[in-house]
């Protein structure tokens, strides 16, 4: 049971990192639907780098770096060129899905390195994730930088008039957000499941995206949501722990996705929608053009 608990926390950490990255993006008004693509890139290149150099640190750094680069790319298209952010996000996702399948294929198989040691029996990244949640909550709601980020996400033209550099702030957010997504992918392929296989993520990024909507852009709710989904994901892989022999293991794999749709339905209820509408960054996915 402890084992299951520890694995669930490890899984939820991946959701936390990716969703936190997306939350920072969205707080500044940029919607990135390509989380899964960024994660795939971070996971694949991090995996290759770690395997080639034999160093976990380099693996994670590469994952973070490629995530940041893809965040910048997304930023360039959606901030500088003012393109439709949904299209750009889809582009990033399909680019990640397509290119990593090709790049990673020669490295198919297990990583073949010593496991990263746990701290008090739990994934070390869980503690990092906890710290990041606290930091991002603090920065977003208690500092002047957070105020800038939120004002840029709510009403960029007003922010611009009051002296905030919209472009710079948004670039900062997409880069940091991308780094977190890339890191989350690297955690998946270097710690959670250190085996490379084609398109191994199978929906983690999209669940993370749904989690951000669910969290009402609050890092604490996001942490709760990712704990829930980490546990669910782990349950769907090991259904025998709760209901042995009921339904095939393939049906169980659909459970996290079915529940995601249920969660999205809950968000759409009136009670939720009023609060959701208030919390939603007003300028989300709207390109900003300086007049």
């Amino acid at each position: 049971m402890w084992e299951f608990f520890a694995r669930s926390l490890a899984a939820s950490t991946i959701f936390t990192f990716a969703a936190l990255g997306e939350l920072i993006d969205q707080r500044s008004g940029i919607l990135n639907v390509g989380i899964e693509g960024v994660m795939l890139f971070g996971a694949t290149l991090g995996f290759i780098a770690a395997q080639v150099t034999g160093s976990y640190v380099i693996g994670f750094l590469v994952g973070i770096a490629i995530g940041g680069l893809l965040g910048l790319l997304h930023g360039f298209f959606s901030i500088t060129l003012g393109a439709d952010q949904v299209v750009v996000g889809m582009g990033i996702w399909i680019l990640g899905f397509g290119l990593t399948t090709y790049i990673g294929n020669p490295y198919t198989g297990p990583l073949g390195m010593d496991r990263i040691p746990t701290i008090l029996g739990l994934s070390p990244f869980f503690y990092v994730g906890l710290v990041l949640v606290i930091v991002s909550w603090f920065v977003l709601s208690k500092t002047s930088l957070g105020l800038k980020i939120r004002s840029v996400g709510e009403n960029p033209s007003v922010a611009e008039v009051s002296g905030v550099d919209v472009t710079k702030t948004r670039y900062l957010c997409v880069t940091v957000g991308g780094m977190l997504m890339g890191l989350s992918g690297a955690i998946y392929s270097l710690y959670y499941n250190p085996v490379w296989n084609y398109n191994f993520l199978m929906g983690w990024g999209f669940i993370a995206l749904a989690l951000v909507f669910f969290s009402m852009w609050n890092p604490w709710i996001l942490l709760g949501g990712s704990l829930l989904f980490g546990t669910l994901w782990q349950l769907s892989l090991n259904p025998q722990l709760v209901l042995p022999g009921v339904l095939s293991r393939y049906i169980w794999r659909t459970v996290p996705f079915v529940i995601t749709i249920g969660v999205l339905l809950i968000i759409s209820t009136k009670w939720f929608r009023i609060r959701w509408g208030a919390a939603r960054p007003e300028a989300l996915a709207v390109p900003y053009v300086k007049e």
């Binding site: 298209f77 299209v87 680019l95 397509g98 290119l99 399948t101």
Partner: peptide, 16 residues
Amino acid sequence: FGLDYALLGVLMITLV
């Protein structure tokens, strides 16, 4: 393996 996947990715980002 995956040349057709890579093409998919490159085409998509170019289109964007």
